[in-house]
Amino acid sequence: MDSARLNRAEKASSVVLVAFGAFIAWYSWHYLKLGMMIMPGAGFLPFCIGMILAVLGAAWYARTLLAPAAPRKALETGEAGGAAAGAESARSVILSRLLPGVLLVVLYAWLFEKAGYIVSTVLFMVGWQKLVEREEWVKTAIVAVTSAAFMYVLFARLLRVSLPSGSWWS
C-alpha cells in the first residue's frame, strides 16, 4: 500500500474503531452491568476498554490528519498516474490471489466435517494449485495427493488426532 492509500485506510479504520469502542462501552453498561466499586460487575472492564478504544480511535484519527500532507500533494501533481496504476495492480492481485485463497479456506472449513478430511483436503489442495497458483494438472495432482497423505500420516497416525471421516458418507 502506498502512503496515501494507507492514510485513507487508517482514517476509515479509526472511525470504525471509535464506533466499535462506543458500542462495546454501551453494551457493557447496558447488558453486562458495571456493578459497584467494591465488587465490579461483569461489564466493568469491557466498559473501560470500550471507552479507551473510542478515545484511541479519536487520537488515531487526529494522527492521520497530521502525518501525510506531503504525499498527498505529490499525488495531486506529478505522480498521480503512477500511484493510480500501483493501486490498480494491487487491486488485481487482491482479486486474483487473495480473494480465491480466502474463499478456498472458508470452503475447506465448511467441507472439513461434512466431506471428511481426505476429500476436503484433496479438494482444497487442488483448488489452491489451480485457482491461486495456476499450476498445471499433473503437478497439481501430485502436490494435492502427497500433501494430504503427508498431513494424514503426521496428524492421524503420529499425533493420533481424530480427523473427521465425513458426515455425508455415513
Binding site: G116, I118, R160, S162, S165, G166, W169, S170
Partner: peptide
C-alpha cells in the same frame, strides 16, 4: 474409500 471411514467409526468403545 468411503467404507474405510465407516468401518473406522464402528469400533467398540473406547476406540480412542
Amino acid at each position: 474409500l468411503f467404507l474405510v471411514p465407516v468401518a473406522m467409526a464402528a469400533d467398540v468403545f473406547p476406540s480412542k
